[in-house]
Design a binder for these strands. Sequence first.
DNA 1: TTGTACGCGTTATCAC
DNA 2: GTGATAACGCGTACAA
Lengths: 341, 341
Amino acid sequence: MGKTRSAPTLNDVAREAGVSTATVSRCLNSPERVIESTRQRVLQAVESLGYTPNFAAQVMAAKRSFTIGAIIPTMDNAIFARGLQAFQDQLREAGYTLLVSSSAYDPEAEHEQIRTLVARGADGLLLIGHARRTDIYDYLERHQVPSLVAWSYEPEAVRPSVGFSNSGAMCELARRVLAAGHRRIAIISGITKGNDRAQARVSGIHQALLDAGLAADELPLIETPYEIDKGADAFARLMALDPRPTAVMCGNDVLAAGALREAQRLGISVPEQVSVTGFDDIEIAGIVHPALTTVHVPHREMGRKAACELIAMVEGRSPGKSVCINTHVVTRHSLAPPAEA
Amino acid sequence: MGKTRSAPTLNDVAREAGVSTATVSRCLNSPERVIESTRQRVLQAVESLGYTPNFAAQVMAAKRSFTIGAIIPTMDNAIFARGLQAFQDQLREAGYTLLVSSSAYDPEAEHEQIRTLVARGADGLLLIGHARRTDIYDYLERHQVPSLVAWSYEPEAVRPSVGFSNSGAMCELARRVLAAGHRRIAIISGITKGNDRAQARVSGIHQALLDAGLAADELPLIETPYEIDKGADAFARLMALDPRPTAVMCGNDVLAAGALREAQRLGISVPEQVSVTGFDDIEIAGIVHPALTTVHVPHREMGRKAACELIAMVEGRSPGKSVCINTHVVTRHSLAPPAEA
DNA sequence: TTGTACGCGTTATCAC
DNA sequence: GTGATAACGCGTACAA
């Protein structure tokens, strides 16, 4: 107990069991290739020494790490949490480990983290959205690391992706807003620079307006980071407009939650005086008051499918195919027809 | 372009620059130990080849990875997100990378992940809470991997920790509830098995009652996972009690949010008919209706300080000291005096 | 200041 | 079935 010896190696186990290191390695990796009796002795030795394989050495020798890396824009709110959890669960089931890091929506940071994860021997990478420099893909190719894009599906994209149509989903939601009778619509969007999901969501709204024969380019639009407080600030600014919008469509539920909070603070009742919509259908969407009309994204399904596809790519069973996840509008109470003027 | 060559190694760079591998290595790790002119050539070669050091090889040779591991109970909600983000930011500033994995509140899974992270060469580990088998610490000691506990501070704990007094904070909150005049108090706690924070929060409430000369062991108490829906279910069961509690203290904001949602569904008004409290002061606490009276935990501060301390331990500058973070009660609208019978 | 050479712990290719 | 042994890519004494 408490004896200060350092971590045992394959060699120590081999000596303890009276076999060669090769045999110990086989016992652990392909037990069927070693006879029962010796296996017993080896596993016994492994147990008594408390041996754990050195990962770095394994990677070096096997050129394979059973590790998948994921770089998400932020861990700071729940947007990616659910999908990533499902992604990880599925990976674990297949014997892979997930390494996560967050880029804080900074393309340069993302680039650096990609290099870090590759240097760490990640067998494959999960990336969010399509918007990034193409030389990053060259780098990944050179290092033979397959990558899969998630949270976004674009039919014309070359890279494989498992996601949904951000523009299509938002377009459908905008149609509902229009159908309710709204014409003075304002937008609180996330920062669109370097974020194809945010861009697509805005253009989805524009599309719906065009389809309805309305002008789309003069909608009040505020871009702001995905934070509750920012959503609140933006909402306050929009409410100061004249004429005041009758509906505020938000880039995600976090911004919408901020908008609702500010509405309450300002004494503006939702949806009687102004309607508010979100996107994602994360937990807070059903918690806020009034509950948010939003786009439901099946995050768990997306996470699972992304894991399956990426593993298939890593194991050479797939060249990388794209999967489109279906979303749907969830109707709750934050959207209603506008009050008559 | 697009030529399918594999990743360049130190050797390739050395050949390209016309120097030895040792010189290249020095250029990258201690640039001051190599003369300007050669350094130029080497860095030039590094650049043109697009060289990235192989991490596994670095770890093997240097027995050092500049990597810190963290195992949190869940990524599924925002409880740990903020603190962890700050933890990571601070680590990055010091040149360390964070590896996160989640144990789903399963002690066995946590144990396994600890071994995984150690095998991966983590220089130090961040663990949540004190409750775990002691042989895990033996394992860490043998592998010479310093570990730091966070999200919990217990004066009598042997292990270094950066956290707050869960019992003390909850005791203070309970005092407020008592001071408001409540006597029929019910508790919705997280699962206490293997979770010292959950245990401490419950005992904090008991302490407050004892201090007030009241019986503490007959409080209605429901243990349930930290999920909104579970909080809602538990709240419904408590409201069916006779006599009905006038205040429901929840183990965290997630459970409290569920309770509020259920109250609204049941047509029970908060705080007029029943008061509800939370814990953590995560974002939803200010979003729900009515806004939650809860315990504010300075998660970012905790994350930063944990990072500083753990790095100090890893670098041998500290044997591991404990830091207590101060919390305080945030008074919002979900707590009010009970209605007169 | 720079180069040589060994070791890190494992896997995999051979013989035996 | 099992045992030598050569990689794997890098850091670092030690020598020059």
